[in-house]
């Protein structure tokens, strides 16, 4: 098994216990273990053969990180990070110790909350009512039905939905940013007008969620908001903390 490498889930402060009955990726789920180097510890398991981003393993990765986040600061690894062997992990921990400690301090008592703004597709009737251009094209289609007219109408609907979501997205970003320790734009998601993560004090996360939800409720005709979290701080870890030469390759 070890021939396929060491799957690395997270870096935590040394002394953090593993969550009870927590398991790793793979089928059967891999047994977790800790590799400590002074004050920093990597949570790892054997990497299963033929590892890929299947649903089961994504869930396992996410679940473990969620549970670790419950008990202390965590530097969550991106899914699928595999070290050649334990020695490589140890060298990495030793070589980047100060950076990891600083990152852990930065994230102490912090959680990530992700917000996605999607076009409010359920509000089609409101769009027809409120958007002059859509209204006009719809009347045109009714007078003279046809392929071209339908495409123009549909395009106008899609554009209006996107614009409304984008405007509402900017508004909620302005509303919520003052409540966050940090804000990070997420990867572009097709169809999302906004994908942004907030670093929130753990004890503030309920208040933040309520504020976001209340905005969502009052802007349903413009935007569909997806609020996810509290999450491990995926978006607030340095993506290149290691010294590139640490492996001596």
């Amino acid at each position: 098994m070890t021939a396929t490498g060491v799957y690395v889930y997270a870096i935590v402060p040394t002394g953090e216990p593993l969550p009870r009955k927590a398991v790793g990726v793979g089928d059967p789920p891999a047994e977790l273990r800790l590799i400590s180097e002074g004050p920093v510890t990597a949570v790892v398991s054997d990497a299963p053969p033929n590892l890929r981003a299947r649903r089961r393993d994504l869930m396992a990765h996410q679940d473990l990180l969620m549970r670790l986040t419950d008990t202390g600061p965590v530097l969550p690894m991106r899914f699928g990070m595999v070290a050649a062997d334990e020695a490589t992990v140890l060298r990495e921990l030793a070589g980047s110790r100060e950076g990891h400690l600083a990152s852990l301090r930065h994230l102490t008592d912090g959680v990530e909350i992700n917000l996605k703004a999607l076009p409010a597709q359920d509000a089609l009737a409101v769009v027809v009512a409120e958007e002059h251009q859509v209204r006009r094209l719809r009347d045109e289609v009714r007078r003279r039905p046809g392929y071209e007219a339908s495409v123009r109408l549909g395009e106008a609907v899609a554009a209006a939905l996107s614009r409304r979501a984008s405007e509402a997205g900017k508004k909620i970003l302005r509303t919520l940013t003052p409540m966050a320790r940090a804000v990070a734009a997420g990867p572009e998601v097709h169809g999302c007008a906004l994908n942004v993560s907030f670093l929130i004090d753990r004890h503030d996360s309920d208040r933040f969620r309520i504020a976001a939800q209340s905005f969502a409720d009052s802007h349903r005709a413009h935007v569909e908001l997806r609020i996810a979290g509290p999450l491990p701080c995926y978006s607030f870890v340095p993506s290149r903390p290691a010294r590139a030469t640490a492996a001596g390759t």
Binding site: R78, G80, P187, S197, P241, A244
Partner: peptide, 16 residues
Amino acid sequence: ELILDRGMVIDVFVRV
């Protein structure tokens, strides 16, 4: 997309 595109990356590790 956060699990796959965010989170820490360490150069000396291999990524699926």
